[in-house]
Nucleic acid binder design. Structure first.
Lengths: 225, 225
DNA sequence: GATTGGTTTTAAGCATTTTTTAAGGAAGGC
DNA sequence: GCCTTCCTTAAAAAATGCTTAAAACCAATC
C-alpha cells in the first residue's frame, strides 16, 4: 500500500512518515503543494491513499484534491488540518475528500481512519472470477472461457453478490435483501429461478454447478483450490 | 441459541423465523400475546433472547417484557415496533428492553443487534475445532483433515452445540431444547440418530468416537490434551 | 396509445434431500 | 441375568429446491 503525504512542516511530516512506514506502508513525502501535485497526478495509479495538509506553500491541499478527483473518482483522500471550524471540514469534504483529521492528532487515530478507508475500497472490488468465468462490474461484462455472456440486471446483481462473497454462504434472506431489496418476503421462489438462469448460462455442461446449494440455508460459490 | 419471537403478523413472523434459522438459531414463534407469555415464562431458562412485537392481540409486548424481567434480570429483549415516536422507545426501554427496532427494518440490522446482545452474554465464536475437525460457522463449512464434509442443517447445529460446549456434558434434554424445537416430544430418539450421523461422517474409522457417550445423561466432546 | 420484445415474477408439479419415527439388537450397570 | 439405555438401520413423512411455463411488468417504438 503506497501513500502520498503532502505536508510542509518537516517535523510533522517525518513523524507521520516514520509511523506509517513502521506499519508497513510505502510513504512518499512532498513538502510543498507544487511537487505534491506533480507526484499525485504523475503517479496517480500508484497511490492507494493521499494525506494532504490543508495549508501549503504553492498549491493548496484543496486544489490537489480537486485535481485528483478530476482523474480518479475512488482513491481515498484524507485532509490534515489545523483549522477547526465545521465549515472548513465541509469545504474539504465537498472538494472530494473522504475524511479529515485535526492537528494535533493521536497517530492511532490517523491510522484507524486510514485503515477504514483502505478497507472500504478493498470491498469495492471490481473484477471477480471463478473457474473460466470472469466478471467486470464496472464495465458490466461477464465472460466464460473468454466468450461474452449476456446477463440481465438481476442475473448480474445476483452473480456479483455470490462472487463478492466467494467462500461464504449466501443465505436466502440476505440475497433477497441485498439483490432484490425486498423486506419481509420469504415465500417466493425468485431466487431459485435466477440461480437456475445463472447455472444455465454459466455452468459447464455435465459438470457440477459452480454454485453449490446448501439446503435450508442458501448458496455458495466455493473458494478455488 | 434459542430465540422466542412473538409476532402476530404471520408473513413478518415467517420472514424473521426463516432468516434466523438460516443463521443457525433455533426459533419458536407465538402469534399472540397469551401464548407468547406462556412460552416465555414456562421456558424462561431455555431462551437466549426474546423478540417481542409491540402491538399484540391479548397480552402486549410490554407486558410480556415486564413479566420476563420480574423473573430474569439478564436475558436480552428486543422490541419490534411499528411506532416511531421517541416516547414509545423510551417506554419500551423503561419496561426493561435492551433494544428496539422499527418496522420495516433490514434483516441485517436486526441480526446485528441480536449479535451485539448475545456477544455480551456468551462469547460468540466463529471457529471451532477438535482433532482434525474444523468448523467455520460463518462460512457454514466443516472439514476433516482438510477435506470438506457435507452436513445438513440439523447435523451442523448439533455439532456446533457440542463444540461450543467442549469439555462439558451436553445433556439430552438440553440438546433437544437448544437444537430442536422446544415443544418436542421428549421420548424421541432423534438425538441418537443424529449423533450417529455425525459419528459416521466425522469419526476416524477404527478409533473411538470424538463424541463420548455419557450413559443416562448425554454426550461430551472432550477437551483436547 | 397500442404493439412488441425482453425481463422479472408467480405458480405448480416433480424430484430430491432432510428429518423423524419406529423397531430390533447390542451393550452397560446393577 | 435383567433392565435400561443407546446404537443402528430402514422406511415414512416432511421440507426444500429444481424446473418449466405462463403471467405480469416495463420500456421502447411506431
Amino acid at each position: 500500500m503506497r501513500i502520498l503525504l503532502v505536508e510542509d512542516e518537516t517535523p510533522i511530516a517525518n513523524f507521520i512518515r516514520d509511523g506509517l512506514r513502521e506499519e508497513g506502508f510505502a510513504v512518499d513525502v512532498a513538502d510543498n503543494g507544487r511537487t505534491g501535485l506533480e507526484l499525485a497526478l504523475g503517479y496517480l495509479e500508484e497511490y492507494d491513499l493521499f494525506l494532504l495538509d490543508w495549508m501549503l506553500p504553492g498549491v493548496s491541499g484543496i486544489e490537489i484534491c480537486r485535481r485528483i478527483r478530476n482523474e480518479n473518482k475512488l482513491v481515498p483522500v484524507i485532509f490534515l488540518t489545523a483549522k477547526d471550524t465545521v465549515d472548513d471540514a465541509v469545504f474539504g469534504l465537498e472538494a472530494g475528500a473522504n475524511d479529515y483529521i485535526r492537528k494535533p492528532f493521536a497517530f492511532e487515530e490517523l491510522l484507524a481512519r486510514i485503515r477504514v478507508l483502505l478497507r472500504s475500497r478493498e470491498g469495492e472490488q471490481q473484477f471477480f472470477s471463478y473457474g473460466g468465468i470472469e466478471m467486470d462490474t464496472e464495465a458490466y461484462r461477464v465472460t466464460r472461457e473468454g466468450e461474452p455472456v449476456e446477463l440481465t440486471q438481476k442475473e448480474f446483481a445476483l452473480l456479483e453478490y455470490l462472487l463478492r462473497n466467494k467462500g461464504k454462504v449466501c443465505r436466502r434472506t440476505r440475497i433477497i435483501e441485498k439483490v432484490w431489496d425486498i423486506n419481509f418476503e420469504h415465500d417466493t421462489s425468485v431466487i431459485d429461478v435466477y440461480i437456475n438462469f445463472l447455472r444455465k448460462k454459466l455452468d459447464r455442461p455435465g459438470e457440477p454447478s459452480f454454485i453449490e446449494t446448501i439446503r435450508g440455508v442458501g448458496y455458495r460459490v466455493n473458494e478455488e483450490a
